[in-house]
Design a protein around this nucleic acid. Structure first.
Lengths: 116, 116
DNA sequence: TTTGTATATCGCAATATTACGATTAATTAT
DNA sequence: ATAATTAATCGTAATATTGCGATATACAAA
């Protein structure tokens, strides 16, 4: 199977892979940035916080932090609830449980495999 | 803390985060693409294979598959050993174990956290 | 009503990523 | 020696991502 037209550069074509593969890749991709790892680790430490707390914690502009929070939220890695004038963010343990299971499953499959 | 010069766009500045945060982000980023998820899942199924097997399995050109394999190998997610004229690839269970532990640790921290 | 606080969105610039075909390099078979 | 096979690398084009400042929005306080 190959592309049927000339438009084939630079874009990840979701229709070439299974829905499950695209789904797991999207979640993992959202975590694949040091700023977003730092946000997750900060959330683990403080349990719950608002955006401006993270802006104080990390060396990035407010708009950049907001963007990263949006990506984490879209991927289901964090939850954000409106609380007065600010938004209360926390880890979404459901998605992290999914990731833990995914990697746990890989480890089970890999056990007593002999490699080249 | 802010950037001290004007060069600040589009680049992820590794020096802004801890070595550990950059390390985990790099590994996770390498997995954050459906083609690379598909390669890993194929390797889990067949245990061991060569590049041309994957080229037959996935709807991508040989050069593209080779590029993805390089990224997975650089991240320590797969191993590749020369075997005659071809290269034998397999999962590197060490790095997947690291990921499993990372997410396991997050789950432990998240347990009995009450969110907003 | 105006001011302040908190966050999201817009527009832009620069770099990174993804994908291809073509080529190269290295090994094996004829 | 030549041809075939396997995989990596190069060059290129297009899209995606990252980051900023500026602006917009929404609510609370004065």
């Amino acid at each position: 199977m190959r592309y049927t037209n000339n438009i084939h550069m630079g874009i990840t074509r979701a229709d070439l892979f299974t829905a499950e593969q695209n789904h797991i890749a999207n979640i993992i991709k959202a975590l694949g940035h040091p700023a977003r790892i730092a946000i997750i680790e900060y959330l683990l430490k403080v349990n719950v916080c608002i955006c401006s707390d993270i802006v104080e914690e990390l060396p990035l502009a407010q708009s950049t932090i907001s963007q990263h929070l949006k990506e984490l939220k879209n991927a289901g890695l964090i939850k954000g609830n409106i609380e007065g004038t600010s938004i209360c963010y926390c880890i979404d343990e459901k998605t992290f449980g999914f990731l833990k299971n995914y990697f746990g499953g890989i480890m089970v499959n890999t056990q007593n495999q002999k490699c080249c």
